[in-house]
Amino acid sequence: MQNLGITVSEERKLTTIILTGELDLDTCPRVTAVTDTLPLGGRTLRVDLSDVTFIGSTSLNMLLSLRLRAEAEMGSLELTGLRHQAERVLALTGTRHLFRILPGAPPAALGDSAFVPAAEG
């Protein structure tokens, strides 16, 4: 089983979950166990994926389910800090448009070649 870190912080109308490590078949149930306890009614749930090193189909299904739950409870889901691999999964599956994705690359990934624009010339 891979290590997964989960940190939750709550403000007035915003709950932020910071995830670190791999989101896969083994770790997604831990995230779901945490999110199932959070009230989403009228709140924004922001999932920070800056330090997530892997996202697969199980992770995508978990995020889609969380999005549906948030909307059903009159809340919203935001994703932030998407790395190249996560962006690619959303693009390949045609699901990127379903999420509110906050702009900007995560600070830890700025040196990653996936976020460096190609040189013109």
Rank of each mutant, 00 (worst) to 15 (best):
L110W: 01
L98Y: 14
A119R: 14
F115M: 10
F99P: 07
L110T: 01
L98Q: 11
S76A: 08
D112N: 11
L102R: 14
L90H: 06
L60V: 07
V89P: 02
I101R: 00
L90E: 04
G75I: 07
E87Q: 12
G111V: 03
S59R: 13
N61T: 13
A109R: 02
M62Y: 11
R69W: 00
T95M: 05
R69P: 03
R96V: 07
E73A: 10
T95K: 02
T58Q: 13
A108I: 03
P106A: 14
T93S: 08
G75T: 09
L68K: 14
F99N: 11
L66D: 05
V89G: 09
Q85V: 02
F54R: 04
L90S: 12
P106Q: 00
P107L: 03
A118S: 15
H84F: 07
L90P: 09
G81P: 01
L90N: 05
G104P: 00
V89D: 06
A109K: 01
S113N: 10
P103I: 12
L77R: 03
A114H: 04
H97W: 09
M74W: 12
D112I: 08
F115P: 07
F54K: 00
M74A: 13
L68R: 15
L102Q: 15
E78F: 09
A114F: 02
R88D: 11
T80H: 01
A86E: 00
H97R: 11
E71D: 15
A72I: 04
H84W: 07
L64K: 04
S76P: 05
L92D: 10
V116Y: 06
I101C: 04
I55L: 12
L79H: 00
A109Y: 00
H84Y: 13
E120I: 15
I55P: 06
F115D: 07
L60T: 03
L66I: 08
A118Q: 13
A109S: 12
L92G: 09
A118I: 15
R83G: 14
R88Q: 12
A108S: 14
L90F: 09
L92V: 15
R69D: 03
D112L: 04
T80C: 14
L68D: 15
N61F: 08
A109Q: 08
L82Y: 03
Q85E: 10
F54P: 02
L64N: 03
I55A: 09
R67I: 00
V89W: 08
S65D: 14
G104V: 02
I55H: 07
E87I: 07
G81E: 01
S57Y: 13
L68I: 11
A118M: 10
T58W: 10
N61P: 05
L63N: 04
S59L: 08
A70H: 05
L82T: 02
G81A: 02
L68N: 11
L110P: 05
A108E: 12
A105H: 02
R67G: 02
R88E: 15
L63M: 10
R69S: 01
A119G: 01
L79G: 09
E87Y: 01
T93E: 05
R69M: 06
L68M: 11
V116G: 03
P107M: 06
A114E: 04
P107G: 02
T58K: 14
T95W: 08
F99L: 05
E120Y: 12
G56C: 01
H97C: 10
A105S: 13
A108H: 05
G111Y: 10
E73M: 09
E78K: 12
S76Y: 06
L66K: 00
L66N: 09
T58N: 15
S65P: 07
